[in-house]
Simulated assay, not measured.
Amino acid sequence: MAAKDRDRFSTTTRLRLLGEQTAARVYRSQTRRQAHRSRLTGRAALLALVLCSLVVALAYPIRQYVSQRAEVAELERQQDEARQRVEELRDLKARWKDDAYAEQQIRQRLHYVMPGETGYIVIDPDAVKKSRTDQGAAARPWYANVWDGVDKSDRAAR
């Protein structure tokens, strides 16, 4: 029985040694993977840090660029509106140089009539009722409003 015990012992010993060797190989392979993983993680962390610092460094200039582009676009729009207004005023100035247009506007706005003509102003009865209830600046003749404006500015100057 001693031989059987030795064989069993030797098989057990062999299995234990084989298990220890296998465990050592697995341990070495895990440490290599962990070492490789830790290097990769460090690289990834460094890359993330560099990317974050680039984003932070470029965020303000990009924001400034975008806001300046918006401001330039707004100024160009205002410039186009001003050009259009200048053209309208040039057209109006050219129209006022025409005597027929000036006469038409004078007749219409100031109710002037040519010598020998009789001027009539037709008053809408509904407008009269409305003007009596409003009693505002619109109900008065234009020259009364102008004169009140002159009086107000004269009082403010004193």
Score class of each variant (00 low, 15 high):
1 M>E: 13
4 K>N: 07
4 K>L: 11
8 R>Y: 13
9 F>H: 05
11 T>R: 12
12 T>C: 02
17 L>S: 07
20 E>S: 13
21 Q>C: 00
21 Q>H: 03
21 Q>N: 05
22 T>H: 05
22 T>A: 08
24 A>T: 04
25 R>N: 08
26 V>D: 04
27 Y>C: 03
30 Q>S: 07
36 H>E: 10
41 T>N: 09
41 T>L: 13
47 L>I: 09
48 A>Q: 07
51 L>F: 07
51 L>K: 09
53 S>E: 11
54 L>Y: 05
56 V>A: 13
57 A>V: 13
57 A>D: 03
58 L>K: 08
59 A>Q: 07
59 A>R: 09
60 Y>D: 06
64 Q>P: 00
66 V>D: 05
67 S>I: 03
70 A>S: 10
70 A>H: 04
71 E>M: 03
73 A>D: 11
75 L>C: 04
76 E>H: 14
76 E>C: 01
77 R>T: 15
79 Q>F: 12
84 Q>E: 14
87 E>Y: 02
87 E>D: 11
90 R>E: 14
91 D>T: 11
93 K>S: 07
95 R>D: 11
99 D>S: 14
99 D>E: 15
100 A>W: 06
100 A>Q: 15
108 Q>K: 15
108 Q>N: 14
110 L>V: 03
111 H>D: 15
112 Y>G: 01
113 V>D: 06
115 P>K: 03
115 P>N: 03
116 G>W: 00
117 E>L: 04
121 I>A: 10
123 I>M: 11
125 P>H: 02
126 D>W: 04
129 K>N: 09
131 S>T: 08
132 R>G: 05
133 T>W: 10
134 D>M: 09
136 G>H: 02
138 A>L: 10
139 A>L: 04
141 P>H: 11
141 P>Y: 02
143 Y>T: 07
143 Y>P: 00
144 A>W: 05
144 A>R: 06
148 D>F: 01
150 V>T: 05
151 D>S: 12
151 D>Q: 15
153 S>C: 01
158 R>S: 12
158 R>N: 11
